[in-house]
Design a protein around this nucleic acid. Structure first.
Lengths: 192, 192
DNA sequence: AAACATCCTTGACATTTATCAAGTGTTTTT
DNA sequence: AAAAACACTTGATAAATGTCAAGGATGTTT
């Protein structure tokens, strides 16, 4: 599974074999079965995690017991709880596997070490963070501006890889609408 | 106005006089009168901007002509359109001044130069980006999970500096609810 | 194969929130 | 000082969306 990460890196930056050996020596592969937690709310999160295979979700549970999905992570994406990582506080979010999955974990200390040793890697990570920021901002825009139907259409446009991979009810949760409303929207859209 | 930026920096990182002279030589002070645009949708954005004084808003206008506020920026915050900056595309957002304001502009080229010359500055900026990311994620959580009233209460908690500074109708826009609904929520909350 | 769980759909109804319109006090402009 | 623009409120009504409940289809476990 390290090779997944290697081809990911090679496609983004120039990296020598020695550099990759360093990275490899600091990474921990972890297999997750469907439904297994990678992180449970209340625990603290200490890693940077790369998804080699599968699909995970990050979600929070409110007072009434309802789940709200903050995001999905599939192959070649990063996941984790940045808030817990940065501030050392217990995580508010849960992360679990929607499919059997494999993630590559780096303790944040090791991760920073890699960033320091391999400037191109550092650049890559900063670029990802900056683009994720833009994506979140666009998601906020959608969230405060769009109707339920527009939110769904926008989701299909921005996340086509997910549309047929995660349950519809989770897409609804991700969009902040009820599963029933999404079902009706899809039904109506067919007629057009 | 450069002194505002200097005390900001000094409060966050150790910085020498020479380093600050470099920064000063690359920054451009710009005064904005109330209502004046810093950026208009369609133009491209080339800067990193620090707010020395005043208050700005970032917003988008939808097909129906409605404004949706993505964020506010007051003294000691950064502003700009990262999407346009990173991708070179025309900005989707407008930024204008809600009060007479002063911003300090750095072309992105100069900004990167400063980051390169002053590692502590670079660290500072990366930390801000990471924390902004967390803040956006929490805002998305609020947006998909909370009722209109909870959104407002959460706003009061997370942004007390803004609550009495920007018009109520703009807070409503920022939260993705109508101005009338916010007015009613405030009225009801008083009774409790 | 039976029992069970999951996922999605559909209908009836309730609730939240938006929209439209009018009115009031306040600030800004002329 | 008058006129205009702005900010907020309030009521009446409409529209969007949520909730509850039932049922069907599919896949999984026993």
């Amino acid at each position: 599974m390290f090779d997944v990460f290697k081809s990911y890196l090679s496609s983004k930056i120039a990296i020598t074999d020695e550099e990759f050996e360093l990275i490899k020596s600091l990474g921990i592969l972890k297999k997750l079965r469907k439904r297994q937690y990678l992180l449970q709310a209340g625990d603290s999160w200490k890693y940077d995690a790369f998804v080699c295979k599968g699909c995970l979700r990050t979600y929070r549970v409110d007072d009434k017991g309802q789940e709200h999905i903050l995001g999905f992570s599939i192959e070649n994406w990063w996941t984790g709880d940045r808030e817990s990582l940065l501030s050392g506080t217990p995580a508010q979010s849960n992360i679990d596997a929607l499919e059997d999955s494999v993630v590559l974990l780096f303790t944040h200390e090791n991760f920073l070490h890699i960033c320091h040793e391999i400037p191109a890697f550092n650049e890559l990570i900063n670029g990802i963070l900056a683009r994720s920021f833009v994506a979140l901002q666009n998601r906020i825009h959608a969230s405060i501006s769009y109707t339920a139907e527009e939110k769904y259409q926008n989701f299909l446009k921005t996340s086509p890889q997910l549309a047929n991979r995660v349950p519809q009810s989770m897409i609804a949760s991700y969009l902040g609408i009820s599963a029933e409303t999404l079902s009706r929207i899809r039904h109506q859209s067919l007629k057009k």
